[in-house]
Design a protein around this nucleic acid. Sequence first.
DNA 1: ATAGGGTTAG
Length: 635
Amino acid sequence: MVSKRIIHSLFKSSDCLGKEIWHFRYRKPIRLKNCALTSCASINSLVLDDCLDEENEYYPSIVHPRVTKDNGYLDHTYYLLLLDSCLSEGSIVDAKKLHGKLLTLGFGADYRIGARFLDIYVASGDLSSALQVFDSLPSGTRNESCWNLLLSGFSQMKRNDVVLNLFSRMIRENVSPDECTFSEVLQACSDSKVAFSFRDVEQIHALIMRYGLGSKLIVSNRLIDLYSKNGFVDSSKQVFEDMVVRDSSSWVAMLSGFCKNKREEDAILLYKDMRKFGVIPTPYVFSSVTSASTKIEAFNLGEQLHASIYKWGLLSNVFVSNALVTLYSRCGYLTLAEQVFAEMPQKDGVTYNSLISGLSLKGFSDKALQLFEKMQLSSLKPDCVTIASLLGACASLGALQKGRQLHSYATKAGLCSDSIIEGSLLDLYVKCSDIETAHKFFLGSQMENTVLWNVMLVGYGQMGLKLFRKMQDHGIRSDNIGFASAISACAGIQALDQGQQIHAQSVVSGYSLDHSIGNALIFLYARCGRIQDAYAAFDKIDTKDIISWNGLVSGFAQSGFYEEALQVFSRLHEDGVEANMFTYGSAVSAAANITNIKQGKQIHARIVKTGYNGETEASNVLITLLQCGEEGFRY
DNA sequence: ATAGGGTTAG
């Protein structure tokens, strides 16, 4: 709204005597009488009376841009008011008409009018018109706010390439960017699909410092984000630590930076620091930190977080509670996960997906499928993530029929082009031994999807190795899981040379430090009876997990080094490592083979204690052990 | 502006 005074001075400054103007009430043009403007109450009242309400405030919507037979008595200020009227009514069509008229009237070069149109076009998303107006402005009048307007327009439309081009043009034309400029530019860089090299980000950083904007909060926050998104989290940390003033977003940016770069421990330490500094945690903080503790399975910390979240009254936040559902699911506390789920006042697709994937992963496939039914009854639509989890559940259940239903659901919903859905579908058919469908599916899919090769490689055992060669013949690069699976396949047929060769290839491909490949190598040596090499490979792994240990135990057990296998099993026990069903299976089998009833019984006791006695693999071998014939041994 | 869920592996 514009005050009465502005309109007054507007009319005073205009030489409008004897001209025709549009009368808004009569809806027709009238000619202004020959009277002195300073005392021209008639003109003022003529227009103003119609435009003012009781509170003497001007409503632009009453003014309509149909000023006829204009000879130029109305200046740009008047047109700016008219433009405001178009804007307040949101009528881009009117604005465009007016623009056309102004151009014919010769107002095109007027900076203020141009800037206003720029604003209108950017706000309405008509960026090509915006760009036209921008280019038609005399270059001397294009100040940084014009540039920023244009930048923010393209940034909102996610045209990041244009944003970056405009930015470099801006620098070339010697316009000084301000914090708004960098805020948009950094945002565009972060959203861009293209990865930035360290040098790229550093150059942007240097520019920021050159223009003296290093202390601006929004700039630093986005810089932290940009460094992190491209994997340079240590530089993010540097920026964060150099900040004199931080706001809540700075902490969140740093937290999520650590989370994005698998630095969960750092994220958790940062959270503790943040609390020490007395920063009030936001939902963003809790969803990030909870997710970080999920990833490293820090269940105790997760419980503490749950308590804090409750204390801050943030359980009603969907993001936060979803993170909690995932936390409890992944740590195996499905009852707690279900409890959080049940108490959520609002649920979204991710809420369902979190619990469904948790149930599927932990073997509660039936429950996962039931929850899927429930989800369909609610108005929420299952998506790729839902289907992928459920396909996993079906694969482990061997539920081919249900899996096929999901397949047709996914086809109807248009989800089948998703590469992860493809992977889990193929895995379903392979695990359910529907070789024909699996083969057809594989041949009909994109060759570049390495997961599909891996699924085939694993599922087809020895045949898999041939496929692995074929993959290489096609020039498709394998990934760490492909190499690991191929090496394991070699282990299975005790093809040491071939396995070593593939390992050498993986090193050439840059996977020399990969965990999965290291574990596979342990298994290869152990399975081929190379005890010392196996231990050497084992020692090379810096963070040994149960799979590393299993490589030794099951490898030795399968190659007939039963005592060795049992020794490793005892060591594992002493080291306080949690065995799983594969470990127990191999250990019991080793004990059975050398009829070591005493150790067999000990293992049995632990199996019962850990609840793995429901697992067929260990139980079957226990029965074998029983058949070895020790009296009094009962399963 | 910054946050949560999915496939292959022994």
